[in-house]
Nucleic acid binder design. Structure first.
Length: 304
DNA sequence: CTCCAGGCGCCTT
DNA sequence: AAGGCGCATGGA
């Protein structure tokens, strides 16, 4: 896929602000950037002045979308954009995924309502830590906790000068050196010891997050489930959002509501039944289908 | 005030 | 094995 690339140290004629940035334009189709960044899979994107500011690894980045392309602005000279293409999964042909979804009315409605919704490919440690912090929290609260954690323990990064300072997501080693009290001060409550202990296990190589990529999904899940604060739902989030195991299907309260309302509207289905349904009905990209149902339920479908 | 939020771990049956 | 409950915190 062709990528037009513009590197610029020059002044914009309309402003006197000195810039030293790199910009790249990526042609895309069926990519709803807003839905993707707001769909509860990542927690560090902020919509400002018509664009999305965020951090990927150690890169501050600003993204803008139109109907045919995504425009990325980095705060430092950048010639290799592979990390961004990978994070955004720009080479994925979305139609080949959605065509594997079950051909039923709820799935059609969700795909139609959320056209262009994508799954990101995130860093395993950031994803794992973020979802340990997610339990019984609303997305706005998770965002606040993660933001505090990054400000207090993450490495400072260079952002474009007109925007607020940026911080990398703190490494497992840095979190492992924090005290439980310091973590609780980030408002994470009873999740603090889970995060701290998991950070220590990662730092001590009791678990190798990179090795999990190479395992079958079931074995990778078993490894994640050994970590404190990680149950089936959070493990499946990491499998899906960080490793790209697209059969992983996180079942949370929203998805339970969605399955009940969309697929069993006339009789109350037990949790066991809904779990079994989630594992058998949605096919090889079940996790992708789950994201459509989740986002559809959260944003578009009539609230009961 | 009460209730609940993209759950998990532990304690009961 | 399956179900109930406490856990921090903050917003509705």
């Amino acid at each position: 896929m062709a990528v037009s690339f513009i590197s610029s140290n020059s002044l914009n004629a309309a402003t006197s602000i000195k810039r030293d940035v790199a910009t790249a334009v990526f042609p895309v189709r069926d990519y709803d950037l807003a839905a993707t960044l707001e769909s509860g899979q990542a927690f560090r994107w902020n919509f400002i002045n018509g664009g999305w500011n965020g951090i990927i690894g150690n890169h501050w980045i600003r993204l803008r979308a139109d109907d045919f392309s995504l425009t990325a602005e980095a705060a430092q000279p950048t010639s290799d954009w592979h990390w961004l293409r990978h994070y955004l999964q720009l080479d994925l042909d979305l139609a080949t995924v959605t065509m594997t979804f079950p051909d039923d009315e709820p799935m059609r409605a969700a795909v139609t309502a959320c056209r262009g919704l994508r799954l990101l490919r995130q860093d395993p440690w950031e994803c794992l830590a973020s979802f340990i912090l997610s339990s019984t929290k609303q997305i706005v609260q998770i965002r606040q906790i993660v933001s505090l954690l990054c400000e207090r323990f993450g490495e400072p990064l260079t952002a474009a000068p007109e925007y607020t300072p940026a911080f990398a997501f703190p490494t497992a080693a840095r979190v492992a050196r924090a005290t439980e009290a310091e973590l609780r001060a980030c408002k994470m409550g009873f999740r603090a010891p889970y995060l701290l202990q998991t950070a220590r296990l990662v730092t001590e190589s009791q678990i190798d997050l990179e090795r999990l990529r190479q395992l079958p999904v079931e074995l990778s899940r078993d490894e994640l489930l050994k970590l404190p604060g990680v149950g089936r739902k959070i493990a499946d989030c990491v499998l899906l959002f960080a490793y790209g195991f697209q059969s992983a299907f996180p079942v949370d309260v929203w998805v339970m509501k969605a399955l009940q309302k969309l697929y069993f509207p006339h009789r109350r289905a037990k949790a066991k039944r809904l779990h079994h349904f989630s594992e058998t009905h949605f096919g090889p990209n079940a996790g992708y289908a789950q994201q459509y149902l989740f986002h559809y339920m959260r944003t578009k479908h009539e609230r009961a």
